[in-house]
């Protein structure tokens, strides 16, 4: 093989290095612009009323997204109740019992499920819950969010359970502790921080979901009294206000975006911090 001259090779190297650095700048630049915009516009419009009031008609000052914040919290909580058992027990099955083809199929299904566009999850839940119950409801919204959460919780929990040393399980079994108690009290407990990390990430993911709520929770201008009624959610309100023609509603949408982004970053950073402290 004939080598090119050293000078040529070095200039190729320099060119490639510059290209990679440029790519990195081009990746970070738009994201920096977006974030600074949210910060600037959001800080201008966020105030106490945002957290305590419900949306007001355009022109009336003092509108907020209190019902959206509460609605999001309620639906995420219900989604956790529905989704966590499936995700965590599914992960226990995969790590403790799952060998062979069935486990591979389950893992693959979970990965595929995680890739299904969330608007389709919304459509399916519409046919499963909204049509039979004759109306949009918080319950349907929570169910859709749970479906999105399950594969995330399953895969992160499985990763964490796999990290628990086999010797720990064997020690417990050798002491005569049955398998199920070992799983719950030894394996699951030693992986607890990791599982909490996964749950935080799952919450961060569904807290911003808008598409699956369009045909399930629908949104609500007012407070919802029952779980079988349409319910407001923060991302839905941001969407509706953003596409409205009114300047004061746009302000509210920016405030909502800032609150959502801060929530998201807090959850992600907490998850990262928990994940790191475990490994060091």
């Amino acid at each position: 093989m004939k080598l090119k001259s050293l000078a040529l090779r070095k200039s190729f190297n320099l060119g490639a290095t510059l290209l990679m650095a440029t790519a990195t700048i081009l990746v970070l630049l738009p994201l920096g612009i977006i974030f600074s915009h949210i910060l600037k516009m959001g800080l201008q419009s966020v105030n106490l009323a945002f957290f305590t009031n419900i949306p007001q008609p355009t022109g009336v000052p003092g509108g907020g997204m209190a019902n959206g914040l509460a609605g999001s919290a309620i639906m995420i909580l219900m989604a956790l109740l529905l989704g966590l058992p499936v995700g965590i027990f599914g992960a226990i099955y995969l790590t403790e019992y799952g060998k062979g083809r069935l486990a591979t199929v389950i893992r693959f299904s979970a990965d595929i499920l995680a890739g299904i566009p969330s608007i389709i999850t919304g459509m399916v839940v519409y046919t499963l819950l909204v049509v039979p119950m004759h109306g949009f409801s918080a319950l349907a919204g929570a169910f859709a969010l749970a479906l999105i959460m399950i594969p995330i919780v399953l895969r992160t929990t499985e990763e964490q359970l796999k990290l628990v040393p086999v010797s720990l399980r064997e020690a417990s079994l050798a002491l005569g502790v049955p398998m199920w108690r070992t799983s719950l009290k030894v394996t699951l407990r030693s992986a607890m921080t990791g599982i909490v990390t996964g749950v935080l990430l799952a919450i961060a993911r569904v807290a911003g979901e808008t598409a699956p709520l369009l045909f399930t929770a629908l949104g609500n201008q007012f407070w919802s009294r029952k779980l079988t009624e349409p319910m407001a959610a923060l991302p839905l309100q941001i969407f509706n206000f953003a596409i409205s023609p009114y300047e004061d509603w746009h302000q509210l949408a920016w405030a909502g975006a800032l609150v959502l982004v801060v929530l998201m970053f807090t959850l992600s950073l907490a998850a990262r911090w928990l994940g790191r402290s475990r490994h060091s």
């Binding site: 977006i34 949210i38 911003g208 979901e209 808008t210 941001i238 920016w254 975006a257 950073l269």
Partner: peptide, 14 residues
């Protein structure tokens, strides 16, 4: 990774 966590609706708003 933080940017991957920003929801779709916020990109839409911007």
């Amino acid at each position: 990774e933080l940017l991957a966590a920003i929801p779709s609706v916020i990109y839409g708003l911007w």
